[in-house]
């Protein structure tokens, strides 16, 4: 038993008389006494509070989830309404003008056909399908759903078209169909040129499913003022020369500024009505445009037989 290993552990758990002998009056210094006393008073002061239970805490359901859900629903509804409004107000699509040549390709797929009837024509009685019509005046264009009767017309048009390919006609130019199209146009000649007065041209372009109408150099559904402006611009831009062509003018156009043009669509020429009688060659695209859309201020000239 050396000095380091000496331990009075055997005095643990002693009885009270022995413990009393282990007490020393100076065992704890003042600082240690104060610290223990403060701790005892602290425990004493808070002891009564620990067992006091009062009041009932009301359960509050958090409202932030409800508000967040409501905001999300409102945002979704607003987005749907806004998107719908934008889609409805988007308007008709703009048709690209990609070709200098004014062509009208009418294509259908089973549901719709376009029937064009011509009530005033020059010299041809051709029935053509999907044809570029020259030397004729298009009077009306109608779009109708395909029905049994229409199918018969289409068949008839196919047959007629085949037959008339043998007949030379400079005024009728077949249209090159690059896609699978159904012949849809029928042309009816109802009166000779001199006895027929052309009704005001009307154009109805009907947007059909999978039907594409391609035009160049002019909008598809021009308004009257725009038609006059476009036509005025095109006619003025032609190269007029002081020579005279054969034939008589078929139509007269008088623009609001008083400018007058005399047109002969069959012979493809136009003459200014300013007294100079200069004439220019009407290009085919302008003729097609005129046949397609018409012109409100254009009147057909009538000639009375002297006899």
């Amino acid at each position: 038993m050396n000095k380091d290993n000496f331990d009075l552990k055997s005095l643990e758990n002693a009885d009270n008389p022995i413990v009393e002998k282990l007490v020393n009056e100076n065992m704890l210094d003042d600082a240690e006494k104060d610290r223990i006393f403060r701790y005892s008073m602290k425990e004493y002061s808070k002891s009564g509070k620990e067992t006091t239970i009062s009041g009932v805490e009301t359960y509050k359901k958090s409202n932030w989830r409800k508000l967040l859900s409501t905001a999300a629903v409102l945002l979704l509804v607003a987005g749907l309404c806004g998107g719908t409004a934008v889609m409805l107000n988007r308007g008709t699509p703009v048709i690209d003008d990609t070709s200098e040549e004014m062509t009208t390709n009418i294509t259908t797929e089973n549901k719709y056909v376009v029937v064009t009837s011509v009530t005033s024509i020059s010299q041809t009685t051709a029935k053509s399908t999907a044809a570029k019509i020259t030397g004729t005046s298009a009077k009306s264009t109608e779009t109708k759903p395909v029905s049994t009767e229409t199918a018969d017309i289409i068949n008839e048009a196919d047959t007629t078209d085949t037959e008339e390919q043998d007949v030379p006609n400079d005024n009728i130019q077949p249209v090159e169909n690059t896609e699978k199209t159904t012949p849809v146009t029928t042309i009816k000649t109802t009166a000779p040129i001199r006895t027929t007065t052309a009704p005001p041209p009307t154009t109805q372009a009907v947007k059909a499913e999978t039907t594409a109408v391609q035009t160049t150099a002019a909008p598809q559904t021009p308004e009257v003022g725009y038609t006059n402006s476009y036509l005025y611009m095109k006619l003025n831009s032609l190269e007029y020369r002081p020579y005279s062509c054969d034939g008589l003018p078929e139509y007269v156009i008088t623009f609001p500024d008083g400018t007058t043009f005399y047109l002969n669509l069959s012979s493809k020429w136009v003459q200014k009505g300013d007294g100079t009688e200069n004439e220019a060659v009407l290009p085919d695209d302008l003729i097609d445009w005129i046949n397609t859309y018409g012109y409100p201020t254009m009147t057909e000239t009538t000639y009375m037989d002297i006899d």
Partner: peptide, 28 residues
């Protein structure tokens, strides 16, 4: 305090630190 400290120390000598013994005395 010395008497209580002696009793508490005698019981907790082998398992408690001096801080635990002081705390026990305060609780007494």
């Amino acid at each position: 305090c010395n008497y209580v400290y002696a009793i508490v120390f005698n019981r907790l000598r082998s398992c408690a630190s001096r801080e635990d013994i002081d705390e026990c005395v305060g609780d007494v």
